[in-house]
Amino acid sequence: MSVSEKEVRYVANLARLQLSDEEVKHLGEDMNKILGFMDLLNELDTTDIAPLEHVVEMDSRLRKDEAKTPLSHEDALKNAPDADSDYFRVPKVIE
């Protein structure tokens, strides 16, 4: 399989990245090189193999329903690029 520049732009949009024409070209080349290397897996017949999702067997567990002190408002907003005293601020999205 080979990735076209059009596909690179499509994937970049999905990944929320803005790429220059040069980056599209370079990333496309890199992706093709790496994906070519990944084609090695097609040597293997995995029809009857179940996908492995958890490397260590463990049961899902429920936690106790008890009140705990969450992160304070102040701490939660501390690293925000833009915030007022209660909320994260973002650019206006509704005209």
Binding site: L35, M38, L44, T46, L52
Partner: peptide
């Protein structure tokens, strides 16, 4: 890709 790799992961395990 992803589905295939998850299956090979089991073989490695």
């Amino acid at each position: 890709y992803y589905g295939k790799a998850q299956r090979v992961r089991r073989l490695i395990k």
